[in-house]
Design a protein around this nucleic acid. Structure first.
Length: 124
DNA sequence: ATTCTAACA
DNA sequence: TGTTAGGA
């Protein structure tokens, strides 16, 4: 199928499908005229990409994990694949650190807010 | 009609 | 990510 077909079947714009290829997530073969020719399995692949992006994984990581999952027609089924656990743990830790930074910022804001309210200096 | 690449009011 | 230009 060509890009327009995949765009319809996956619900992802053609622009984005080209971007995924640019990121190494999809590797459609090329027709003699230069058009991209996608495999039927790419429909599921796009779903998996969306799922991983929703999990906050960066495209560089998704590129490697994509080959570690199989599709049961509905969901993304993870399979044994070297490096997968390591990658997922690294991303999980990255997210934990981000949460911690945000909590620190929140505490700082809370302190400032409490102070200004207590002091009654919220003159506008 | 569709797709391609490159680029950005 | 959208959109548009200029081609095939």
């Amino acid at each position: 199928m060509r890009i327009g077909d995949l765009a319809r079947e996956s619900g992802v714009s053609r622009r984005l499908l080209r971007y995924y290829e640019e990121q190494g997530l999809l590797r459609p073969r090329r027709l003699p005229n230069g058009y991209r020719e996608y495999a039927d399995a790419d429909v599921a692949a796009v779903r998996h990409i969306r799922t991983m992006l929703a999990a906050g994984l960066p495209t560089t990581v998704i590129g490697r994990l994509l080959h570690c999952v199989h599709d049961d027609g509905e969901r993304m089924v993870p399979t044994a694949c070297p490096g997968m656990v390591t990658n997922l743990r690294r991303e999980h830790r990255r997210i934990t650190e981000t949460i911690e930074r945000l909590q620190t910022s929140q505490q700082a804001l809370d302190t400032m807010l409490t102070t200004v309210l207590t002091t009654g200096l919220d003159q506008r």
